[in-house]
Amino acid sequence: MADDQGSDMHVDNHVLNALREVMEDEFALLLDTFLSDSDERLRLLRQAQAQGDAQAMRMAAHSFKGSCSNMGAVLLAGLCKQLEDLARREQLDDVAALLGHIEREFAIVRILFKSERQRYR
């Protein structure tokens, strides 16, 4: 569970280093898998918003949160948690802004991961 650090970083390099150590040759594959997974998750979130389905939104946000924390995307994980809490309270009217914020943050994370990936092709 990502906890709030002094400066909410986009990507925690300690986590990335640990991942690199574990995955070795498969590190690039892991990053790719995360990125395509996350695309799918965002799609589900948008769909849930459109359908007003709080339950589906909550589950997708929860799942996304877990993935992000594993990958060291601290800020993004925190945003997902906020979305999860809103969805649990069924306050879907307020999600639009938050969802936008999530997409923008993900875009940043994507760039950072892609550059990581370049180094370890």
């Binding site: 991942l19 574990v22 995955m23 498969e26 594959l29 892991l30 898998t33 995360f34 395509s36 997974d37 799942s63 877990g66 993935s67 594993n70 990958m71």
Partner: peptide, 11 residues
């Protein structure tokens, strides 16, 4: 169910 998490854990 998360593919990335599954891959990480398996490794």
């Amino acid at each position: 169910d998360s593919a990335a998490d599954r891959m990480l854990l398996s490794t």
